[in-house]
Amino acid sequence: MSEELYITPDPWSGLRRFTAARIALGRTGAAIPLREVLQFRLAHAHARDAVFSALDLRLFTQQPWEINILHSEAADRTDYLQRPDKGRKLHPASAASFAPANKDVAIIVVDGLSATAANQHAIPLIERLMPMLLSRKISCAPIQLVQQGRVAIGDEIGGLLQAKLSILLIGERPGLSSPDSLGVYLTFSPRPGITDEARNCISNIRPEGLPYDMAAAKIFYLVQEALRLQLTGIMLKDNYTPALP
């Protein structure tokens, strides 16, 4: 393979500096060279592994935070992928395990479509965010860890906790170049039946995308604004501009 004897190269690889798209791949006959085929297959394998990854519960329970472990109504990944409605509802046993905490915010970590993302990025993000919140005397309910969950499950959880605001961290749908993207959704006065236009979303949190420090600062800004204005969603504008390094 090192010789690539049969490959017709594309003499425009200079264009690659303008885009991350897979251009100037060369060809053998009509086909993509094997080297590129295997790179693609590896990227897809990472994405598929991320979809079928599970939350590392031990990783979270080792942290110095009070953790509550919950499960949605989706029995397993296959059920989860075909029944988004089940991923939005707590399993009855989980729903029965609550007592209202009456705190300002509820931090909820959900596997979503990439538990890998939650395993890798939720803890470093919370480690940065928590001190910021406490510095402004914003109180936090115990951290809720949800298996087989979707975004809207945070509404039921936030409602049961009687939190003013939910901060939901969830693994986003893996792309070929990003199997570990974490998304964060802020929802004021969470309760079942809320629709997506009432949330604010911060996407692509990972070292190669939106780094932890910037993500935490952005979330902190939005949390303060949400509590001040008593709302989230399209009326809450993301005017936060980070100081450039």
């Binding site: 590129e36 693609f40 792309g175």
Partner: peptide, 16 residues
């Protein structure tokens, strides 16, 4: 390009 749409994050058919 290469069946990988970097904006929409899905796989389609390539020029090849």
């Amino acid at each position: 390009p290469g069946a990988d749409d970097i904006m929409l994050n899905y796989q389609s058919t390539s020029f090849h």
